[in-house]
Amino acid sequence: MTDPGRYKLNHSMLRVKDPKESVKFYEFLGMKLVNRIESPEAKFDLYFLGYDSPKAASHANHWTDREGLIELTHNYGTEDDPTYKITNGNSDPYKGFGHVAISVDNIQAACQRLEDAGYKFQKRLTDGRMRSIAFALDPDGYWVEIIPQKPAESTESIKESDLTTYRMNHTMIRVKDIKKSLEFYRDVMGMTLKRTSKNEGAKFDLYFLGYGPPPSGSSPSGVSAVADQEGLLELTYNYGTEVDPDFKYHDGNAEPQGFGHICVSVDDLDAACSRWEEKNVNWKKRLTDGRMKDIAFILDPDGYWIEIVQNEKLKTRTKW
Score class of each variant (00 low, 15 high):
Val175Trp: 07
Thr155Arg: 10
Gly231Cys: 14
Val175Lys: 02
Lys179Arg: 12
Pro214Arg: 05
Gly201Glu: 06
Glu230Ser: 05
Gly231Leu: 14
Leu163Ile: 15
Gln149Asp: 00
Glu200Cys: 00
Pro220Cys: 11
Ile147Trp: 06
Ile147Thr: 13
Gln149Thr: 01
Phe208Gln: 01
Glu200Leu: 07
Ser219Phe: 09
Glu230Asn: 03
Ile158Phe: 15
Val188Ser: 06
Ser219Met: 06
Phe204Ala: 08
Leu182Met: 06
Leu232Phe: 11
Gln229Pro: 07
Ala202Gln: 08
Ala227Thr: 09
Glu183Val: 04
Phe208Ala: 02
Pro213Trp: 11
Leu232Asn: 13
Pro148Phe: 05
Pro220Trp: 07
Ser161His: 15
Phe184Lys: 10
Gly231Gln: 15
Pro213Ala: 08
Lys198Gly: 00
Lys198His: 03
Met191Ile: 06
Tyr207Gln: 03
Ser181Glu: 02
Thr165Ile: 01
Tyr185Trp: 02
Lys194Ser: 07
Leu232Arg: 14
Pro148Ser: 07
Ser221Val: 02
Ser181Met: 00
Pro148Asp: 02
Met189Ile: 13
Leu209His: 14
Ala202Asn: 05
Ser154Met: 00
Gly190Thr: 11
Asp177Arg: 04
Thr164Asn: 14
Leu206Asp: 05
Lys176Leu: 13
Ser181Leu: 02
Pro215Ala: 02
Tyr211Ala: 09
Pro148Cys: 04
Gly217Lys: 09
Tyr185Leu: 00
Ala152Leu: 08
Glu160Met: 03
Gly231Asp: 13
Pro148Lys: 01
Ala152Met: 14
Leu193Ser: 03
Leu232Asp: 14
Lys150Phe: 13
Asp205Asn: 10
Gly212Gln: 02
Pro148Glu: 04
Val223Phe: 09
His170Trp: 03
Arg174Gln: 09
Asp177Gln: 03
Asp177Leu: 04
Ser224Phe: 11
Ser197Asn: 06
Thr171Pro: 05
Tyr166Ser: 01
Val223Trp: 11
Asp205Lys: 07
Leu206Gly: 07
Lys194Ile: 06
Leu182Glu: 04
Asp187Phe: 12
Arg195Ile: 01
Gln229Leu: 15
Ser224Asn: 05
Arg167Gly: 11
Gly201Ala: 09
Gly217Ser: 04
Met189Ala: 14
Phe204Trp: 12
Lys159Val: 02
Met168Tyr: 12
Gly222Tyr: 12
Ile173Ala: 15
Ile147Lys: 12
Ala152Cys: 11
